[in-house]
């Protein structure tokens, strides 16, 4: 038997034993817990009250993401070497993904040169926003715990992109940008004409034209909801699987039972969804920008 097999078997036995032990001690009893509200995990408490510009945890996460985006990239850019180390190689892969795949793949070269800074910054910012969301930070001021007399906010997973307003603003910027590009290339009426697929004439226009205008606005909604719902649902399912469900139902064995699913989902979200959603948002922004100026 190999070492890996032994370790896996040990973990499996530990899991089953723990489950049996919890069932023996606490039994299959449940009680309804009305105190714990799962939606409070995503609640925004104002820490510094400045009216519309109040600082809450979403703002903190946005600041961290923005600072990380700027400083990590400037740090790498300042220390470029002819023989790259691992960090530089990784950043170069990221850079070529953003420049060649996302931007140049979807628009012509003169436009790509103009819009690459925006698309690249968008990708990196959303990426950092998503990634720091999987580091537990002491930001849950709703629930506090006592550490040697000091009231410390609970450690919580939260991402700024799990709040609908952040993706909405990013989507609005993209929306304004591609419409502006479209108006600039085709003119005001020309742009609306360019939205309609070629070969459509006559009375069918009455049906197609409103649909095309609606689909233009649907892009805004789908961009927003895709990012926000992916991150929110990911955080929620991690919360439920890693113990939230057990707390609501009041069954300790259930928490132990669902914990492996929580760990697996955490790895899935961290490894795939965080990067994929940033990639999708940037790619779709590039596609919309490219299609706004094309003739079809």
């Amino acid at each position: 038997m190999s070492n890996t097999k032994k370790i896996l078997l040990g973990i499996g036995a530990f899991y089953v034993l723990g489950l049996i032990l919890l069932l023996l001690i606490f039994g299959v009893t449940t009680h309804k817990n009305n105190e714990f509200q799962p939606q409070n995990e995503f609640k925004l408490d104002n820490w510094v009250n400045l009216g519309v510009f109040s600082i809450n945890r979403a703002v903190l996460y946005l600041f961290i993401a923005a600072v990380l985006t700027i400083f990590t990239m400037m740090f790498v850019a300042r220390r470029m070497r002819a023989r790259p180390n691992r960090v530089q190689t990784g950043t170069e892969v990221l850079f070529s993904l953003m420049r060649d795949n996302i931007t140049r793949g979807n628009m012509d070269d003169s436009m790509a040169a103009r819009w690459f800074p925006y698309i690249g910054a968008l990708f990196l910012f959303i990426w950092y926003c998503n990634l720091i969301g999987y580091i537990p930070l002491p930001t849950n001021t709703e629930e506090k715990f006592n550490l040697f007399g000091a009231q410390i906010p609970s450690f919580a997973l939260y991402a700024a992109t799990a709040n609908v307003s952040v993706p909405l603003v990013l989507a609005l910027v993209t929306f304004v940008a591609f419409n502006w590009e479209g108006f600039r290339t085709h003119g005001f009426f020309g742009y609306f004409k360019s939205l309609i697929p070629s070969g459509v004439h006559g009375p069918i226009l009455l049906l197609i034209a409103p649909l095309e205008v609606i689909s233009l606005f649907m892009r805004l909604i789908s961009l927003t909801v895709r990012l926000f719902a992916n991150i929110l649902a990911g955080h929620m399912i991690i919360l439920f699987m890693a113990g939230g469900l057990a707390v609501i139902i009041g069954a300790s064995w259930l928490g132990w039972f669902t914990l492996p699913a929580g760990v697996l989902l955490y790895l899935f979200e961290l490894g795939l969804v965080a990067t994929l959603q940033a990639f999708i948002f940037a790619t779709l922004s590039a596609i919309y920008l490219g299609s706004a100026v094309s003739h079809h």
């Binding site: 789908s222 909801v225 895709r226 719902a229 992916n230 649902a233 994929l276 959603q277 990639f279 999708i280």
Partner: peptide, 10 residues
């Protein structure tokens, strides 16, 4: 994949 997965989240 991401476009399809988004439908689940809707």
């Amino acid at each position: 994949f991401a476009l399809t997965e988004a439908c689940f989240f809707y």
